[in-house]
């Protein structure tokens, strides 16, 4: 049965009516119309759907709406803007990371949470923190460079 849910996404409240079992990803994409969390696998295996729930990186493709509660949801669009970018967004541009870029959401959202907790990580720590995320184009070297650059920017 459908229920009403109020989701706070990037500081804005949205009320939707949906199946409590529906993964958050579908609410964000289909009901609220955001394009940044991506559907990659629906199995929490790739990270393309990652959002922050109260700052915690979370795979929205397996998070049922019923589990979201009052958590504040942050998506890539809420992380920073061209006029006020997150260091990772700046670093991605500086390092020109993409090939297709469909995976970007997962890497940046996961790395943002990691860099929020860990100052000046080593290359190995960066790789460990990002382990499990997928990129199919092979941009891994660029990703490591960008995260390292962002870490340096964040001091």
């Amino acid at each position: 049965m459908s229920q009403k849910f109020t989701l706070t996404v990037n500081g804005k409240a949205h009320t939707i009516e949906a199946d409590p079992d529906m993964p958050l990803l579908y609410a964000l994409r289909d009901d609220i119309g955001l394009n940044n969390p991506k559907f990659g696998c629906g199995l929490a295996q790739c990270g393309a759907c990652t959002v922050h729930l109260d700052g915690q990186p979370t795979r929205s493709c397996v998070t049922p709406l019923s589990a979201v509660g009052k958590a504040k949801i942050t998506t890539l669009a809420g992380l920073g803007t061209p006029s006020s970018p997150h260091p990772l967004q700046t670093a991605y541009i500086e390092e020109q990371v993409p090939q297709c870029g469909y995976c970007i959401n997962g890497w940046i959202m996961t790395a943002a949470a990691f860099l929020g907790k860990k100052k000046k990580p080593s290359d190995a720590e960066i790789r460990d923190a990002l382990s499990g995320l997928k990129c199919r184009c092979g941009t891994h070297m660029g990703i490591v460079r960008a995260v390292k650059r962002a870490a340096e920017m964040m001091g």
Partner: peptide, 16 residues
Amino acid sequence: RNDVAPKVFARFDYIT
């Protein structure tokens, strides 16, 4: 490239 900034700021539409 021109596509990196729109992609990292979630202002880029893919086919999906």
